[in-house]
């Protein structure tokens, strides 16, 4: 990075650290913070979408759809989420390969499960064995995002289902009295009003999602936990920058990062709650109105 970094063995003090912290591996590691942020940025809306779908399904008057929605909501009850994380990644991978196998190799006669092996035809492999490394990494990341979205979608579905039930019945009855169809009532009355009831639950969910991101490491993505172990250990940089076991310092940095992330989130969500409560017929909205009047 810097001009004086050509021979690390003669450096000392801050120059050594300046070079050490900007070597190639560290720059890659800094990018992995981006991986975490990308995961959050993609997963949160996707999970919200899944949750919305689940909540609407659970409210449906059509039996099978309602059972599906309720079932989806309750898959997360009583079972540790990490079990789902480990399960879904491998199950989704096999599911995709099986679907492609059915589509691409119709005349393949061997069974897919042979004893302890799962064998699909070479064309159905995901990603293709000839694909470059970044495709493999991207596919792994995609599986992780989908897994997070499915699990957190179930959480979100439960929150949104509760929020929809919390919208005062009188609002919906008034809408019906004005001649709105159920579809119109849903779009114009129910959905705009439910957010204020959903926000505490969704805030809580966001905090859990933030704190679940290190689990990416278990799903095989090279995230910040992976790099903290890799860079802090003595093996990773034994040639250019020998140092003792510094993993504890790397994990301290991660702790600080997560504490910062959660406290920023807390502040933003508190402001959002204030904004959403404005003008609502709730205790928070009423106290805001009084403040203005007083």
């Amino acid at each position: 990075m810097f001009s004086f970094c050509s021979d690390p063995s003669v450096l000392d003090g801050w120059r050594w650290f300046a070079c050490y912290l900007t070597n190639g591996k560290h720059l890659t590691a800094y990018l992995s913070f981006g991986t975490v942020m990308a995961l959050l940025a993609i997963t949160a809306p996707t999970a919200l979408l899944f949750g919305f779908g689940g909540a609407v399904a659970a409210r449906s008057s059509f039996g099978p759809l309602r059972w599906f929605g309720k079932g989806y909501t309750s898959i997360v009850r009583g079972v540790p989420d990490i079990v789902f994380f480990l399960f879904f990644v491998i199950a989704l991978d096999q599911g995709f390969e099986w679907l492609r196998h059915q589509a691409l190799c119709p005349d393949w006669t061997d069974p897919i499960r042979q004893g302890n092996d799962f064998i699909v035809c070479p064309e159905a492999k995901l990603p293709q064995s000839s694909a470059p490394q970044w495709v493999h990494e991207l596919y792994g990341f995609f599986l992780a995002v989908l897994t997070f979205a499915i699990v957190f979608g179930a959480f979100a579905s439960n929150v949104l289902f509760g929020a929809m039930a919390a919208v005062p019945q009188a609002q919906l009855e008034t809408a019906a009295a004005y001649g709105m169809t159920p579809r119109q009532t849903f779009r114009r009355i129910l959905v705009p009003q439910m957010w204020v009831y959903a926000l505490p639950g969704l805030s809580n969910l966001w905090m859990i999602l933030v704190k679940a991101t290190p689990l990416l490491f278990l799903l095989g993505v090279e995230d910040i936990v992976y790099w903290a172990r890799e860079l802090g250990g003595t093996k990773g940089s034994v040639f250019a920058y020998p140092h003792p076991d510094w993993r504890i310092w790397y994990f301290t940095a991660l702790l600080v990062f997560y504490l910062g992330l959660t406290s920023v989130s807390e502040r933003v969500l508190a402001r959002l709650q204030r904004r959403l409560s404005h003008g609502q017929a709730t205790a928070a909205g009423e106290s805001q109105r009084r403040e203005v009047v007083a």
Binding site: V210, K211, P214, R247, F251, Y258, L259
Partner: peptide
């Protein structure tokens, strides 16, 4: 604040190290 604000996962790693 410290224990609620950080992931349990990281706490495990940190404590082990």
């Amino acid at each position: 604040y410290l224990f609620r604000g950080s992931p349990l996962f990281i706490q495990f790693f940190f404590a082990y190290e």
